[in-house]
């Protein structure tokens, strides 16, 4: 039995509820740490950043599912909806921390969204995620049919905007946002050149 088969065997036994639970737990934990002075002396920015990074990591994980199956035969497709919805939840929490705790001044929030390009880009990414989150259920898949697949290609736009948002908010030439951008770019490139035969991927 190959490594991929064994992994697939394990993955089949994991209920999706466990994935939701595992990835949601850090959210209240981070908040608790921040509220109790255990996230440094500027907890607002740290919490904001933690939620944002978590969202980007989940988006990357979601993007990796198709190439993992195509190139390595590892099938995690069952968890893709959970990962996508979790990413949306973290983007929403990231946004809430920014709105309520970070800026907190309504006039300044509007000015920032319209005038600050990195915030405009981030808000754009969030807006694109809303129809995806709303249609992440079996009923929508049935109703929309082939249109559902088309709609959910918006994910590519979302990750590009996410990567750009992180690159734009950094001061100076920094390594971390470049790593995220490279991962996202690489995973998107696999979409342009899918493997010649799906059969080959399945038979290994």
């Amino acid at each position: 039995m190959s490594m991929a088969d064994r992994l697939n065997g394990v993955a089949r036994k994991v209920p999706t509820g466990a994935v939701y639970l595992l990835f949601l737990l850090p959210a209240p934990w981070f908040f608790y740490l921040a509220a109790n002075g255990q996230m440094g002396v500027e907890p607002i920015n740290t919490l904001e950043r933690k939620y944002g990074e978590m969202a980007l990591q989940l988006l990357i994980l979601g993007l990796a599912i198709t190439p993992l199956r195509q190139y390595l035969g590892i099938n995690l497709i069952r968890f893709r909806r959970a990962i996508g919805l979790l990413a949306f939840a973290y983007v929403a929490m990231h946004l809430l921390v920014w709105l309520v705790l970070d800026v907190g001044i309504l006039s300044q929030i509007w000015a920032d969204i319209l005038k600050r390009p990195y915030i405009t880009v981030g808000m754009g990414g969030f807006a694109l995620m809303i129809p995806l989150a709303i249609t992440s259920n079996n009923m929508s898949i049935r109703k929309l049919g082939p249109k559902w697949r088309k709609l959910h290609r918006l994910t590519y736009g979302v990750v590009l905007l996410g990567a750009l948002h992180f690159l734009m908010l950094s001061k100076g030439f920094q390594l971390e946002p470049l790593i995220y951008a490279a991962l996202i770019g690489g995973l998107l490139l696999t979409r342009l050149a899918p493997p010649k035969s799906m059969e080959r991927a399945r038979s290994t």
Partner: peptide
């Protein structure tokens, strides 16, 4: 005079915790 990427009209004083206002 704002920074091109963010406002300079207000600031956060370090030490106020998670719920400190600008």
């Amino acid at each position: 005079v704002n920074h091109p990427r963010w406002s300079q009209a207000s600031e956060r004083r370090i030490g106020g915790g998670l719920f400190a206002k600008r």
